[in-house]
Design a protein around this nucleic acid. Structure first.
Lengths: 211, 211
DNA sequence: GTCTATAACTAGATAGAC
DNA sequence: GTCTATCTAGTTATAGAC
C-alpha cells in the first residue's frame, strides 16, 4: 500500500512491530484486560521487563495498535474513494475497501472496535476523532448520492451506522481458511448494500401498516 | 413479555437479580476482565464475600447473564415469528424483534456477544448452542423465502450473518435519550433489509465488471 | 536490548463471626 | 444473608546488572 520501501534495515521487523503483532493477536483473542504483560512477554519469548524498553506501558501498546489501524483505515478509504467516480461507485469502492480490510486485517480491526473502552480518556479522544473522520466519509457519500438522485435514504446517519455495523461484523466471523475469500465477501456486501440504497428500484409494497 | 406475574414476593427484585443487573452494566462498560468483584460489590453496597453467597464465582455471574439473555432472545424470536404469516413478513417480524431487543435491552445484548470469549470452554459451548439455534431461525426464513420466490439471495449463510451483524450493531450505539426510539430504528432496518432481499426489485445495472 | 529480582498493589475466593 | 479478616496468586511496572 505504501509507495516507499519500509524504513526497516533488513527484512526483519523491528522489535516494536513484533510486540504489536503479538499483542494484537492476544488482545483479539482474550481482550486487553484478559491479557497480562507476562503472557505477552512469554508469547514473544521475552521477560516482561524487556517489553518496557520498547513501550512505557501496556496502555501505550493498545493505543499504538488502534492508532495505526485507524490511520491505515483512513488512508485506504481515501485512496479507494479517490480512485472511483460518482457517489454510487465511490460508495461501492468504500464498502469494498472496508470489508476487505476487516477480513484481511481481521485482528487489528476487531481490536480497534472492541477495545475502545479500554483506552484512557485522552487516548480514546484521539482515536474517536479519527473514527469520526472515517464515518464522515461514508455519510458524505450517502448525502452526495441522495443529492444526485442515485440513492434513496430516509436517514443518512442511521444508514451509515447500519452499513458500517454490517461490514465491520465481518471481522468477528471471518476465517482465513474459510469458504469465501475477502474479495468474494466484499463483492456480496457491495451488491446487498447497493440494492438497499438504490433510488431506481421500486418498492412495490404499499405504504400502509405491515407485518 | 411473560404472561405470568413474577414469582418474586414483593415488587423487590431478589438479590441475585440485583447482582446480575449491576454486573451487566459494569461488564458492558468495562468488560468482564476489566471489572473486579470488588468493584461490583461496591456498586451494590456490599462486601465481596456477600456476593459469593449468591454465586460461586465471577464466571457464574457472567454465564447467568448470557444464558438468560439467550433464552429471552430465542423465546422472543419464536413468538415474533409465530405471530406472522409467510416467510417475508416472518423475516420482517424477526428483524423487528431483534432490533428492538438490542435497543431496549442494550447492555445484556452487548455483553452477550462481546464477552463470549470470557466464558470457560464448557459455558461457551452451552451459549453457542443457543446462539446457533437463534441464527438458524434466520437462515430458515431466508431459505423459505427463496423457495417461495419472494427473496433473491445468493448465499444464505453470508446474508444471515450480514443481517445479524447489522442489527446487533444497534446495541453498540443505541442511546435511550437519543433521537430515535427502538421501534423507529427497527422500522428502518426492516425496510432496508426487505429491500435488499426483494426478488421483485430489478437490478438495472449490467452484470459486467464495475467500480 | 535483554536479563534477574523485586516493589507495590490488586485479583478472585474463603473462613468463620454475627 | 452480610460482615471482618485474610489467603494465595497474579497484576503492572521499575532498578540495576550484564
Amino acid at each position: 500500500m505504501a509507495t516507499l520501501a519500509p524504513v526497516t534495515p533488513k527484512g526483519d521487523a523491528v522489535a516494536s512491530d513484533r510486540i504489536l503483532r503479538a499483542a494484537t493477536a492476544l488482545f483479539c483473542e482474550r481482550g486487553y484486560h484478559g491479557t497480562s504483560v507476562r503472557t505477552l512477554a512469554r508469547e514473544l519469548r521475552l521477560e516482561t521487563a524487556s517489553l518496557y524498553y520498547h513501550f512505557h506501558s501496556k496502555q501505550e501498546i493498545l493505543f499504538a495498535i488502534l492508532d495505526r489501524t485507524l490511520d491505515d483505515l483512513l488512508d485506504g478509504l481515501r485512496r479507494a474513494v479517490a480512485a472511483a467516480d460518482g457517489a454510487e461507485s465511490q460508495l461501492r469502492a468504500a464498502v469494498r475497501f472496508h470489508v476487505v480490510f476487516h477480513a484481511r486485517r481481521r485482528q487489528e480491526a476487531f481490536v480497534s472496535h472492541s477495545e475502545l473502552r479500554s483506552l484512557t480518556p485522552a487516548n480514546l479522544r484521539r482515536v474517536i476523532a479519527k473514527r469520526d473522520q472515517y464515518e464522515d466519509v461514508f455519510r458524505g457519500l450517502l448525502t452526495a448520492g441522495i443529492r444526485g438522485g442515485v440513492f434513496q435514504v430516509p436517514d443518512v446517519k442511521l444508514t451509515a451506522a447500519a452499513i458500517l455495523s454490517m461490514c465491520t461484523g465481518v471481522a468477528t466471523w471471518f476465517s482465513e481458511g474459510g469458504r469465501l475469500a475477502p474479495e468474494a465477501i466484499a463483492g456480496r456486501y457491495v451488491e446487498v448494500i447497493s440494492k438497499s440504497l438504490d433510488a431506481r428500484s421500486v418498492d412495490r409494497r404499499g405504504k400502509g401498516p405491515r407485518s
